[in-house]
Design a protein around this nucleic acid. Structure first.
Length: 793
RNA sequence: GCCGGUGUGGCGGAAUGGCAGACGCGACGGACUCAAAAUCCGUUGUUGGUGACAACGUGUGGGUUCAAGUCCCACCACCGGUACCA
């Protein structure tokens, strides 16, 4: 008998090398085979190295990918690097190293960490968003958007850090202050490149019907896009110019007692000569602009405003004269920047009206019927809304209008470590795209990566790069010095994996049509309204220009829960609860780490890390490794074990598809317990068990596969086992007995008995019969092979 | 405020309306050992009882049902997202 200890280090190294040498996980360009494209979000190679959260996602889809391969699919499971970004740039600034060097170092570390986990990535298709051969296509897509008018430059309000003196992305503003230095963030108007994602708003909502995403992901996207349908209504004013407002409740128009416009509304400037209190209004506007995000949310409920003196508006249906106010509770960036206030039926308007003693007119009663509304009286509010829109349209004073909360995507960053925007500005020709033949537009080499004080990109310093010729007229022109945001490269990367070395196209047409869409994409919830939305938008655009074969990039999306620290809080340096995956792999092995992370709880829910629980996963692997010592082919596996085996094959197969990795492992543990209870295992059963455990613990199962000569070269390349539905049923079963719904014992019997036969048997059971003795049986409920309930009086 | 999610032993967590607590951790008892670790065997929801057994038990309060962790109604707590979006 072998007594050799299980040595994870030797075994795991051996198989990782063999797999790599034989290239067994490389996807084949055999376009007649059934394909399966499994994808996980490629990481940002940070200086901290891999987090224990990464392997949760990667192992899960590794299990799926490995099983699909064993089921005969041509599987693509690629990995790459989303490597542009702020932390690397900050590190580079601080340590005066080129970000490229930092990135390369981080990638090397990540890669070796991932390899030590035995994930079956196809490393031959590795991509890196900072590679000019990659980002030339990011730039190329941008140019196509520019040509279609989807990329445009415009003045936009951006976040401005008062201490760093530079622009911040929305995600860099944490509760109103700068993420880097904690200083105040204010709004500033700046000329920015924008992407017209709002043109795709409706499609981004509608096409969610076509994909298999978790409901919470769909609703979060729908809420973020924020569709509302109402009407635009033109209110005449005493200036002669109309004020156009937006409302979702045009039916409440008889309840309008004033209008409110945003402080930035151009109406103020246009009519400054007619406004008697223009100085006060300008002062108010200045105050409003000075407010930081933080202050704005703080004073959220305490509304301020000022009446415009000397000008009034006229209600287009009642012809009543009403005042106009300026208030920062109305945003210039939504709708028309002007509203009609209905204080009776809007909380914010009500608060404002109370503060400024404005009249409140009720127009909808408690039964949802219109009142005080002339021709609308008596109608339900929904009917009234329809009727009012029609009426306004006939009068030419309003029209139905749909609005979205979604804004166009601010696409400029004043930073070095990003894709250069391939546009030049010519005084004569305006914004001119550089010719596609000049792509990639490489990032120039510079010494100082720090942003300039004025909020301009550090590229602004490189005069030799900035000053160029206009591709159109040949005259002097300047290059765009802003770069693209972190989210650019990840918006299309899944396409590049189809054909990562292609020099002529983002990928060959054939490869795209074969591999797309991604069959299963797993990633974090935090990307729901960022990367996931952005990439759906880009893919739709690529569909529109004939590159993508369909409108949605991902057929199925799942989302893993976060792995929390042992104290149930988010892992972070400051909380001191970080677990380094290297330590776990070193001490327990990759197979144990994989099993542990899959067994930790429901994959889709957050779960706290617990180092002492890892032992259970390690024990399970060792028990599996020990099976080789109890092989006995002279005996036959019991009938009970045969049933258990088939049930387990079924359970594991289905659980993997249903993202229930924890219960799949539990059922394997239960099976191995049963095998040890029996005291031996046959080679055939060990073979099947090895195949079932292989996607979860690939190294140790390859080792057993080889040592016990269970089949050809690799377990990972063998056929996934099939189960027999017939054999999943026990012939001997247990039936629960109840009296009046209360459990009173159980009987063992053969399967398939009739109600009468079971009842007779039940009566011989003393604890059951005790409770029906002397009582009248009113009803018997019999669930075949499961339960018998006697209702007695 | 609005949207989404979650509440089950000491802990992580299982349960197509049908034996609540699978599987694992921990704990307790035992075997092996000079001893410890490892391993193996057993016990482990709470309360009462020597015991067989009984009662109670899935956030709270109601309801539907022969039967509810699961379905319905009302609420409470926590977590995530979002926020003056008219």
């Amino acid at each position: 008998m072998e007594t050799e200890k299980y040595s994870h280090k030797e075994i795991e190294k051996k198989w990782q090398e063999l797999w790599e040498k034989e290239g067994i996980f490389q996807a084949k360009n055999e376009y007649d085979k059934p394909k399966f494209y499994a994808l996980v979000e490629f990481p940002y190679p940070s200086g901290q190295g891999l987090h224990v959260g990464h392997p949760r996602s990667y192992t899960a889809l590794d299990i799926v990918a490995r099983k699909k391969r064993m089921q005969g699919y041509n599987v693509l499971y690629p990995m790459g690097w989303d490597a542009f970004g702020l932390p690397t740039e900050n590190y580079a600034i601080k340590n005066k190293i080129h970000p490229r060097i930092v990135t390369q170092k981080n990638i090397a570390r990540f890669k070796s960490q991932l390899k030590s986990l035995g994930i079956s990535f196809d490393w031959s298709r590795e991509i890196d968003t900072t590679d000019p051969e990659y980002y030339r296509w990011t730039q190329w897509i941008f140019l196509q958007m520019f040509k279609k008018g989807l990329a445009y430059k415009s003045e936009a309000t951006v976040n401005w850090c008062t201490s760093c003196k530079c622009v911040l992305a929305n995600e860099e503003v944490v509760s109103g202050v700068c993420e880097r230095c904690g200083s105040e963030v204010i709004h500033k108007v700046k000329s920015q490149w924008m992407l017209g994602i709002t043109k795709y708003a409706q499609r981004l909502i509608d096409d969610l019907k076509k994909v298999d995403y978790p409901e919470r992901v769909k609703t979060q996207q729908i809420n973020w896009i924020g569709r509302s349908s109402g009407a635009e209504i033109d209110f005449a004013t005493s200036t002669g110019e109309n004020l156009r407002i937006y409302t979702t409740c045009p039916n409440t128009i008889y309840g309008v007692t004033y209008l409110v416009i945003s402080p930035e509304h151009p109406f103020i400037k246009c009519h400054k000569n007619e406004i008697k209190n223009i100085e006060d209004i300008d002062k108010y506007k200045l105050e409003a602009n000075k407010k930081s995000d933080f202050q704005r949310t703080e004073v959220n409920k305490n509304k301020t405003g000022i009446k415009i003196e000397g000008i009034f508006a006229v209600n287009p249906v009642s012809d009543k004269e009403i005042p106009i106010f300026v208030s920062d509770y109305v945003l210039m960036s939504y709708g028309t920047g002007a509203i009609m206030a209905v204080p009776a039926h809007d909380e914010r308007d009500k608060e404002f009206a109370k503060k400024y003693k404005l009249p409140i007119v009720n127009v909808i009663d408690e039964n949802d019927n219109m009142v005080n509304s002339d021709i609308l009286d008596g109608l339900k509010s929904a009917e009234a809304k329809e009727k009012m829109i029609k009426l306004l349209e006939i009068k030419g004073k309003g029209r139905a209008k749909v609005n979205y909360k979604l804004r166009d995507w601010v696409f400029s960053r004043q930073r070095y470590w990003g894709e250069p925007i391939p546009i030049v500005h010519c005084k004569k020709c305006g914004y001119v795209p550089i010719p596609e033949s000049e792509l990639p537009l490489n990032l120039p080499e510079i010494e100082n990566f720090e942003s300039l004080g004025g909020g301009d990109s550090p590229l602004e310093n490189i005069e030799s790069w900035v000053n160029t010729k206009c591709p159109k007229c040949g005259g002097p022109a300047k290059r765009e010095t802003d770069t693209m945001p972190q989210w650019a490269g990840s918006s299309w990367y899944f396409l590049r994996y189809a054909d990562p070395k292609n020099k002529e196209n983002i990928a060959s047409d054939k490869s795209i049509r074969y591999w797309m869409p991604v069959d299963w994409y797993n990633g974090g919830m935090e990307h729901t309204t960022l990367h996931l939305l952005y990439s759906r938008f880009w893919y739709k655009f690529l569909y529109d220009i004939g590159i993508a074969p369909d409108v949605e990039p991902y057929k199925k999306r799942t989302s893993h829960g976060m792995i929390l620290g042992e104290n149930n809080e988010k892992m972070s340096k400051s909380r001191g609860n970080i677990i380094n995956p290297d330590d776990i792999v070193d001490e327990y092995g990759a197979d144990t780490m994989r099993i542990y992370e899959m067994f930790i709880g429901d994959f889709e829910k957050p779960a706290p890390w617990n180092t002492s629980s890892i032992k259970g996963s390690r024990r399970f692997i060792e028990r599996y490794f020990g099976l080789r010592n109890i092989i006995d082919d002279s005996k036959k596996m019991s009938a009970k074990l045969e049933t258990s085996l088939h049930k387990t094959i079924k359970k594991v197969s289905e659980d993997i598809e249903n993202i229930k990795f924890n219960t799949a492992i539990a059922s394997l543990m239960a099976l191995i317990n049963e095998i040890y209870d029996q005291g031996f295992i046959t080679t055939e059963y060990l073979r099947i068990f090895t195949l079932l455990i292989n996607p979860f613990a690939p190294h140790v199962s390859e080792e057993i596969w080889q040592r016990c000569k269970l089949g050809a070269k690799f377990a990972s390349s063998a056929q996934w086992p099939k189960y027999d539905e017939e054999k999943c049923r026990n012939s001997e079963i247990e039936i629960a007995l109840q009296v009046n719904g209360k459990f009173r014992g159980k009987i063992n019997c053969s399967a398939g008995l009739s109600e009468k036969e079971v009842l007779e048997l039940a009566k011989t059971n003393s604890s059951f019969s005790k409770f029906i003795e002397g009582k009248e049986i009113i009803k018997i409920i019999y669930v075949p092979n499961r339960l018998l309930n006697a209702v007695v009086k």
